[in-house]
């Protein structure tokens, strides 16, 4: 849910990066952190295991700039991908304004993508959201790997509703900002509609 602060002149939105484990969600946030000016970002917090797998979430607050004198602040979260962390994922989806689904393009991860997508649909419903209505962007990540499925094939299988799709290589930053921008745009357009 959006927090509109007329006192600090800020609009605060929550964007969640969802998807199968090891798909590149944390890497997306790391890249955004690297390319954002220090004055426009807060500390990046990663609640991870010893082996650097996301345990609870990653959190990165960024300021995208001003519109009409209001700072547009986005709180970016990732969820842990592994199936058994479902309880944590539900918590992170509370009050979400938009979702980025980071799909792993590798052939052997197809089932994991599909499972995660249906898990997203279920968990959103549980929080009172509808995947068909919420701001949503699909990212096809790991396009650089030789075992990546053709993008057209992935789109056929993973597209939910004609959402924007971006091909990405997250560690190189390819497609990362475009994905964020498309998601932020949808959130803001939605906000304008409801205002």
């Amino acid at each position: 849910m959006t927090f509109i602060n007329y006192v600090a002149r800020e609009i605060n939105c929550k964007l969640v990066y969802y998807g199968p484990g090891l798909g590149g969600k944390t890497t997306n946030l790391q890249h955004i952190y690297q390319i954002t000016n220090p004055e426009n970002k807060g500390k990046m917090i990663s609640l991870a295991t010893e082996t650097e797998r996301t345990l609870f979430f990653d959190f990165l607050p960024i300021d995208l700039g001003q519109i009409r004198g209001f700072s547009m602040r986005f709180h970016l979260y990732t969820v842990p991908g592994q199936v058994f962390y479902d309880a944590s994922r539900k918590l992170i989806l509370k009050g979400v304004d938009g979702v980025v689904f980071v799909a792993d393009s590798q052939e052997e991860r197809l089932d994991a993508n599909l499972e995660s997508l249906s898990n997203l649909n279920l968990n959103l419903k549980e929080q009172g959201f509808d995947l068909n209505k919420i701001p949503y962007v699909l990212q096809l990540n790991k396009r650089d790997l030789p075992n990546a499925l053709p993008a057209e094939r992935l789109k056929k299988l993973l597209l939910v509703k004609g959402e924007p799709v971006y091909e990405a290589v997250a560690p190189k930053g390819v497609g990362v900002l475009e994905t964020l921008k498309a998601a932020a745009r949808q959130v803001l357009v939605e906000l304008r509609k409801s205002a």
Binding site: I4, R9, I11, L64, I67, K181, A184, L191, A195
Partner: peptide, 19 residues
């Protein structure tokens, strides 16, 4: 007395990332 922050245009959104 407070201007609405919501009457922004699509161009306003584009500018966000242009910095």
């Amino acid at each position: 007395n407070s201007p609405s922050p919501f009457d922004f245009t699509d161009e306003d959104i584009d500018k966000l990332f242009g910095r």
